[in-house]
Amino acid sequence: METQLSAITRLVNELLDLSRIQVGKLEYAHEMVDLNAGLKEVVEVSQSTQTTHTIVVQHAASPALVIGDRDRLAQVFLNLVSNAIKYAPDAPLIEVALTTEASAATISVRDHGIGIPRELQGRIFERFYRAVTPQQCAFPGLGIGLYIVAEIVKHHGGTIRVESEKGKGSTFHVILPLATSREEVTRNREREQR
């Protein structure tokens, strides 16, 4: 019963977020966010509610700080981990990795599940689109989760992409600018506007 209630609550929240995005009213905080800590929290929550899968995390060796909304970024990672679990019912290992480069952090969520056919991958971030075949309709969802994820990532100055092969799983990559590079971009925009 608790699982069903959580699913309904998440669905209602996604519909509200979708409405807010459509009218440009989705609110964001702007604070320093530690991606290592945020991912750890999301994985702990996911692991405590999903006992069928094991979630392995590889944290970044160096600090991974971004400027953004901690709760919205957690929403992104929770959606990606939940989808990985949902679409890999017979493959109990989910891998989450956080890596950093000079100016960006990359969060990758990998499953070994059903995968996404190549011809459908270009549309999975569209509103109300679900990349499932008629045989896979048993997987619940409205096709708005990845749309919301993509909008949140875009708002944070980042990008999201997928690598997938049918029957071999999927890996979603979220790339976000690190705080120092994000601050430089903001300063450069302010200079250009003067």
Rank of each mutant, 00 (worst) to 15 (best):
I107D: 03
G158P: 12
I144S: 01
I85W: 07
I160F: 02
D71Y: 11
G167N: 11
L65P: 02
V42C: 13
S46I: 05
V56W: 02
A74F: 07
Y87H: 15
T49Y: 14
R110N: 03
A102H: 13
M1H: 15
T49I: 15
F172S: 01
H112G: 05
L11E: 13
V174K: 06
T133K: 14
D71H: 12
R20M: 04
C137R: 13
I160L: 05
L78R: 05
M32V: 13
R70S: 08
V162W: 10
R191Y: 15
T186Y: 06
L146W: 06
L73P: 06
Q4H: 14
L65V: 06
Q22W: 02
H53A: 10
E119V: 04
S108R: 04
G24N: 11
D71P: 01
E41N: 14
L39K: 11
G113P: 02
G143K: 04
G141D: 03
H173I: 00
T51W: 10
H59P: 11
L80Y: 02
D69P: 07
P63S: 06
A37W: 07
N79Q: 10
Y28R: 06
K25C: 02
P177T: 00
L39V: 13
A179C: 05
R10Q: 12
Y129Q: 13
E184V: 04
S46Y: 07
L16K: 15
G143E: 00
A37K: 09
V174I: 11
P117M: 03
I114E: 09
V185L: 07
Q50A: 10
L39R: 13
L73C: 09
G167I: 10
S103H: 13
K25E: 10
R10W: 12
F77L: 01
E119A: 10
R187D: 14
A29V: 07
T99P: 00
L93D: 05
T171N: 03
G122W: 09
I152L: 05
V12E: 12
H156F: 02
T106H: 02
V76F: 04
G68M: 06
N188R: 15
Q47A: 15
Y28W: 06
H173K: 04
K40S: 15
E184I: 08
A64W: 05
T186N: 09
G38I: 14
N83Q: 05
L16M: 10
R130K: 14
E126M: 14
L18P: 01
T3S: 11
N36E: 07
V185H: 07
I107T: 11
L15Y: 07
G38W: 00
